[in-house]
Design a protein around this nucleic acid. Structure first.
Lengths: 161, 161
DNA sequence: GCAAGTTGGTTGACATGTCATCGACCGTAG
DNA sequence: CTACGGTCGATGACATGTCAACCAACTTGC
């Protein structure tokens, strides 16, 4: 057990700031989204990903991978969204095991109604508070971290080790 | 309903990167923490806040405010941690309604055992991947966003409006 | 000193996420 | 063709977080 390199003052400030921002931003965006559109953030993400897809439909596993969700979580969540009439499940023609999620008209309507307000909130509480340089830096830095982590994560999807 | 200002390419890159990083970093840090120390991130945060306090103890409401948790969440979580012997509840001498959480020896031992590995993981997956300029920028930007959000959040604690 | 309103914390019901497991189906080696 | 191992998605049990209701104790105005 060697004495670790603790975070120095600037590092600590960045780390604590990140975690605090994370929490507050999440709370606020979720709050506005529920209030204005009756959707949770996970709902929004599912609908958003589906609506950006050419045919408004995706294989479950494909959607799960894009969202970095477990298949189980997605399955549970889709069941709830299906109850509310936002999405439907269809059989997958290409693979008898699989299924396909599709946006319903109500789902499409929900995301179209929610999107402008949500983007505005993201601007108001984050993007518009940053300088162009900061936006650039944030893009660069997050993508570097993601690339670093993504390898492990994908690898871990297959087997533990 | 006016057409909103959608995110441009750089803004979108920053926003998506942030959310992806958020998710992956969280998964990885939580995974290592559980594996190496048998603690969840919320456990770690509670123990960490308590251990940084002079007397190793805090009023529930004080701790909840620091962590940006609801009182209810904290109460539930402390019950679970109490079960595991990491903390205890004590009566508050100054206010008969209140109570005080205190670190147990086991709790102190747990956080001391967990901290070096956790800090190392934070370095490995985030801090050490950034340039000094980026760390500086991240600190500045997150604190600006937090300040912007903190007002609303505190205000909302009292009354809805 | 007491009635009314506020605050601190707990609780129970419920929503959500995780983990382990399962059945069905796929692909491939024999 | 068939047996085998791996993948797809669903499910049930459980951990965690949220929300609303609650009790008890504090505070304030009279």
């Amino acid at each position: 057990m060697e004495e670790p390199r603790w975070l120095d003052e600037r590092e600590d400030r960045a780390w604590r700031g990140y975690r605090r921002m994370r929490r507050l931003l999440d709370l606020e965006l979720a709050r506005e989204l529920t209030q204005d559109a009756g959707l949770s953030e996970p709902d929004y993400d599912v609908l958003s990903d589906l609506s950006e897809t050419p045919d408004q439909r995706l294989r479950l596993s494909e959607l799960a991978d894009r969202m970095l969700w477990s298949r189980s979580r997605l399955s549970h969540h889709l069941s709830r969204m299906q109850q509310r009439g936002l999405v439907t499940r269809e059989e997958c023609p290409a693979d008898g095991r699989g299924s396909v999620v599709a946006l319903t008209p109500a789902g499409r309507q929900a995301i179209e109604a929610a999107a402008p307000g949500h983007v505005a909130a993201v601007r108001r509480h984050l993007i518009d508070l940053l300088t162009p340089e900061e936006i650039e830096a944030l893009g660069a830095l997050t993508h570097r971290v993601v690339d670093h982590l993504a390898g492990d994560h994908r690898r871990r999807g297959r087997a533990e080790g």
